[in-house]
Simulated scan of single mutants.
Amino acid sequence: MKKLVILVLFTVSLSCKEQVKPQEKLEQQKEQIVVSNDFPEELEKIFDAHGGFAIWRKQKTLVFDLPKPKARETHTIDLISRKDKVTTANYSMGFDGEGVWLLDADKTYKGDPIFYHNLMFYFYAMPFVLADDGINYAATENLEYEGVSYPGIRISYDNGIGVSSKDEYYLHYHPETFKMQWLGYTVTYRSGEVSDNVKWIRYSDWMDVNGLLLPKAITWYNYEGSTIKEEKSTVTFENMTLSDTKKEVGFYQKPEAASFVIKE
């Protein structure tokens, strides 16, 4: 009889736990969602001005072309895993989830694949890429240009995030429309040291891509500190597509003839 009572109590206890678990799981999911969207109010407004973060997070694959003088580049990025692939007529490179690879039989590529393979993705996917995990937000001084004062947000990264976690970004937006207007950034990849040399890119040419405002062209400017000077160079993007479907299995995989790149 005693054993029967214990068995009944155990069964009731187990039943209660099974009934509570779904609710506990739901609350945990809610907490995770709140944390993942815990952006500064200004950044939320910037996302909204560009179509909304909810639309962005539904996308799985991004593709765009960079028309360069020597070789047109096609960049393809898995927005969930951040695997990527850059293809040209002469060479290709990418990140397969484990390492960066390069396929370049004729040795025509002279850059650094580790630094470059996803560089243009980060510039192109602004402002939404600034919602990634491991990011810290802080206030920064307004950027003054041609009589307009552009408020800004300073972005830094937790240690170990990305190839250069000491890099910093400065996102400046229009005070009335909240559309992104300027991006300041530092480069610490090779030195590994914090830099105060902030380069500046103007974002003023946007286009609608599947309901989101993404750049059609971005322009680097000469500068002295935070004083913006004349235009320096412009990069244009073509054939941009966003899709809620993923590429086929193996698309980002290192080709058999390619080699993994070792950071120097």
Score class of each variant (00 low, 15 high):
S204Q: 10
S204N: 11
S204T: 11
S204V: 11
W206L: 00
M207C: 08
M207P: 07
D208T: 05
V209Q: 01
V209E: 03
V209H: 02
V209A: 00
N210G: 04
N210L: 09
N210F: 05
G211M: 07
G211C: 02
L212M: 00
L212A: 01
L212E: 06
L212K: 00
L213D: 06
L213C: 07
L213I: 04
L214M: 07
P215Q: 03
P215R: 02
K216A: 08
K216I: 03
K216C: 08
A217D: 03
I218W: 04
I218H: 02
T219M: 01
W220V: 01
W220E: 11
W220R: 05
Y221M: 05
Y221V: 08
Y221R: 04
N222K: 10
N222M: 02
Y223F: 00
Y223L: 12
G225M: 07
T227W: 06
K229E: 13
K229S: 11
K229D: 09
K229V: 08
E230L: 02
E230W: 12
E230I: 08
E230H: 14
E230C: 09
E231T: 15
K232N: 13
S233M: 14
S233K: 15
S233L: 14
S233T: 15
T234D: 03
T234K: 02
T234H: 00
V235N: 09
T236E: 14
T236A: 15
T236I: 14
F237N: 09
F237S: 07
F237E: 03
E238N: 09
N239P: 14
N239S: 10
N239I: 04
M240C: 13
M240E: 06
T241G: 06
L242C: 05
S243E: 08
S243Q: 05
S243H: 03
D244V: 07
D244T: 10
D244A: 13
T245N: 10
T245P: 10
K247A: 02
K247R: 08
E248F: 11
V249Y: 01
V249M: 13
G250Q: 05
G250Y: 00
G250T: 00
F251E: 05
F251N: 09
F251Q: 02
F251W: 01
Y252W: 04
Y252R: 01
Q253G: 12
Q253T: 13
Q253D: 14
